[in-house]
Amino acid sequence: MIGVVSYLAFFLTMAGILAIAVLGLNLQWGNTGLFNGGVVAFFGAGAYGLMILGGRPEAGQFGGFQLPFPVALAGGVLLAALIAWAVGILTLRLRHDYLAIATFGVAVAFESVTRNAEWLTGGAKGLRGFHRPLEAAIGDPFLFSLAFLAMVLAFLAAVYLGLERLVRSPYGRLLRAIREDETAARSLGKNPARLRLAAFVLGSAVMGLAGGLYASFYAFISPQDMAPILTFQIWAMLIVGGAGNNRGAILGAVLIWAAWTGSGFLLARHAPAEFQLYTGTIQYIMIGLVIVGMLMWRPQGLLPERLAISQTGGEAARRSASRDLTGRETE
């Protein structure tokens, strides 16, 4: 019984951490229409930032300052935000797909730093050793795992409520206005580039928060944790749940994480021995099929974006509600 509960706690902790990252992506893609092709780099910035600031010192290794958990976590979030700011300021003025290419480049560059800069990131062996908050005070590992789950869920709730407020505020309306029609927003005296940058940085900071929680959960981080597939998983979670809908983002995270762990379990158990090496490959194809399939047949996701309808705009709103979420312009 305790085995089932502790597995469930592990499952929900991971799903909760990933859901936070999906919420960050939703602010970028769902609400603002920004394509982030390097989610893993911002998630990783939070994770490595936390481990460098809060990890234990080791010979020949920069970092290991053993800062308290909240400070280390905040440092990781800040690092993710800084990277996002630098990339955003260069690309957000340009053609929309430049951001996609540049963020993909960030992920490649980030991966080569994590694999090679041993003095900073520990290289392939990664960084280990982190005093998890309250671990010593609670003592019992089972109780601690429940407490950690509670903390993750509290962070998730805080991010969800914060983003819900943000999206419903005039600021959120502005983000959607820019997504739908940039020229119109500009003609009203709004500055799309600055708003996009703010949304991009904020979304990346939320991904950094998820990464920081992930690293503190395992008290270990290595380039293996930061594989490019993470970007695809988080994208699949958002598109399945419904871009533009924060509840959908959380639902998608739980569903895809369940499908991922479930398929991994089944393949490990039932796939023939010579196929074991390729279980990851099969799972990757499934993630790819989910992304392409959703885009082709149900781009609005399971929970479509709820459109805020103004009272005088009934007719227009009905029309736009019948349209796909992503159906901006057709060629």
């Binding site: 229409g33 394509f35 092709g37 929309h96 797909d97 996609a100 695809f232 994208w235 598109i239 990757y284 194809i285 993630i287 790819g288 099929l289 989910v290 992304i291 392409v292 885009l295 082709m296 781009p299 796909d324 992503t326 159906g327 901006r328 312009e329 057709t330």
Partner: peptide, 15 residues
Amino acid sequence: AGPLSMVFASFGVAL
């Protein structure tokens, strides 16, 4: 859908 959905789909196709 718009061009960014195509970018998105191309990621999936590549995978």
